[in-house]
Design a protein around this nucleic acid. Structure first.
Lengths: 230, 230
DNA sequence: GACGCGACTAAGCGTCTGCTTAGAATGTGC
DNA sequence: GCACATTCTAAGCAGACGCTTAGTCGCGTC
C-alpha cells in the first residue's frame, strides 16, 4: 500500500527557518517598500521600520537589539529614538501597518462577490497570498503580539476581530443559503484563519510555490472545509 | 443576508495570549508532569524543564532569564548549570522530549487502521489533541526552533520529517485507492500539519473546547480537505 | 571519623541591553 | 546673518544578561 515519496523539499517547508542574517532578498524588499509606500513617513523612519521587520522576523523581537535596527537603517543607536519613542513603539507601528494592510486586502476580496462560496474563496486566497508575499511582516505581526503593551495589543485585536467576523459571517451566510454544510461555524472559522496565519511561519520566498498559487490551493481547501456542494 | 454574530470569545482565541506570569494552572501542570513521567530525570532537572517550558511559552525563549527558570525550580541561578550545560540545552531537551512525544502519538494513531480515511482521521485528530493538551510545550517546540543551534535543529528536523512523511503517505495511499481526491498531495499535507501546529499558538486551557473535541473537529476537516468520498 | 562525591549557593565576571544626555551639524524663515 | 527647529551622533548610565568560580553542605562508604 505504501510507495516511495520524496521527503526533501516539502519537509523543509515544515521546519522553522534558520536565522537569516543577510536580510531580505531584493524582490521581497521591493514588495515590502511598495506595501508601505502609501504610509507618510520620513525616509529614516521608513528605513527603521523595514530594518526592524527584517530583524524581528529573523531573530525575534526580544533577541533583536535596537543597535542592530539602527545599523540596518544606517543610523547610530541613538538615532532610533528621534523617530520612535521605544523599541515596542517600532513593533506597534509594524503591527498596525501590517494589520491595516491585511484588513484592506480582506475587504477588497470580500467586495468582489456577495455569493458565499465565491466570497469565501476570494477572502481565504487573498489572506493566504498576503501572508505568503509579506511573510516577513506577517511573521512579526502574528508571532510577536505578546511583546506589545496591553493597550497596543488591544488596539490590534480590534483589527483582527474584523477579519474573524467577516469570515464567520460568510460561513453563516453560506449555511443559511444552503451552499455550505458547516456543523461548527466558530470552529471552522478558527481553522480557516489558523491555516492562513500559519503560512507566515513556514513560507519561504525561495520555495517553489508562488503566493498566488498557494492562495488558489487554500481557496479550494476552504470550500472543501465549508462543505461546499459543487 | 447578514445577521448578528457573537464576536467575543472566539475572537479571543484568534489573539495571542497575554503574557502569563503565574505559571500553569493546576490541571495542566499535572498533565505536563504526567507526560514527562517516563523520562528518567533527577527531580531538580525535571523541575527545571517544567519551569523552562512555562517561562519559554509565556515570554519566549530570548525574553526568559535563566535566573527566572532557576527560581521556578527553587534553585539559585547557578543551580541550573549543575543539570544543563546551557540555556539552549534546556530548550533542546524540551524540544526533544516534546517531539518524541508527538511522534509516539502519531505512530500509535496510525497503527489503529490501515484504511487511509480512518488513518487520516486518527492521525490528524491525535496530533491536534496533543497540541491542544500540551499547548504550552507545543508552543515552545514549534515557535522557538530558530533559537536552537544548527546541530540541534537538524536533529529535531529528522523527527518532524517522520510525521510529515506519514501524513503524506496516507494521502497518497487514499488517492491510489480512490478514497481521496487530492490534486496537490504535498500542498495538502503542508496545510494539514500547518492546521494542527497552529493550535499551539491560539489554544487556551480556559477556552470552551476540550482537546479531544477539537481533535474530532479537525479530523472531520481533514477528511473534507482530502476530498473523502463519504 | 576521615574520605570522596554529587548537589547546591554566594558572589561576581565581562558583556550586552534599552535608552538618555549634551552637543554638533544641517537646513529654513526672516 | 542670525534665530530656530530638526536630525543626528559620541559617550555613557544603570541594570540585566549567561555563565563561572570557589567553596559549603549533606550523605553514603570504608
Amino acid at each position: 500500500m505504501s510507495g516511495p515519496l520524496r521527503t526533501d523539499d516539502s519537509a523543509g517547508e515544515l521546519d522553522t527557518a534558520p536565522v537569516i542574517e543577510s536580510g531580505l532578498d531584493e524582490s521581497e524588499a521591493r514588495d515590502l517598500a511598495q506595501a508601505w509606500l502609501n504610509e507618510p513617513l520620513a525616509p529614516a523612519a521608513r528605513r527603521l521600520l523595514i530594518g526592524a521587520v527584517e530583524a524581528f522576523a529573523a531573530r525575534g523581537y526580544h533577541a533583536t537589539a535596537t543597535r542592530d535596527i539602527a545599523a540596518r537603517a544606517g543610523l547610530s543607536s541613538a538615532g532610533v529614538y528621534v523617530h520612535f519613542a521605544s523599541k515596542e513603539e517600532l513593533l506597534y507601528q509594524i503591527s498596525l501597518i501590517g494589520h491595516r494592510g491585511t484588513v484592506q486586502v480582506v475587504r477588497a476580496a470580500a467586495a468582489r462577490s456577495d455569493e458565499p462560496a465565491q466570497r469565501l474563496r476570494a477572502v481565504i486566497s487573498a489572506i493566504t497570498a498576503w501572508h505568503a508575499r509579506y511573510h516577513t511582516t506577517a511573521r512579526v505581526i502574528n508571532y510577536e503580539m505578546a511583546a506589545l503593551t496591553e493597550r497596543h495589543r488591544s488596539d490590534i485585536s480590534t483589527l483582527r476581530r474584523e477579519i474573524d467576523a467577516l469570515v464567520r459571517q460568510t460561513l453563516a451566510d453560506g449555511v443559511a443559503s444552503g451552499a455550505f454544510d458547516v456543523p461548527d461555524v466558530r470552529g471552522t472559522t478558527l481553522a480557516l484563519l489558523s491555516l492562513t496565519i500559519d503560512v507566515a511561519r513556514w513560507f519561504r520566498a525561495t520555495g517553489t510555490r508562488a503566493p498566488e498559487e498557494l492562495g488558489a490551493l487554500y481557496g479550494d481547501l476552504a470550500l472543501r472545509m465549508a462543505g461546499h456542494r459543487g
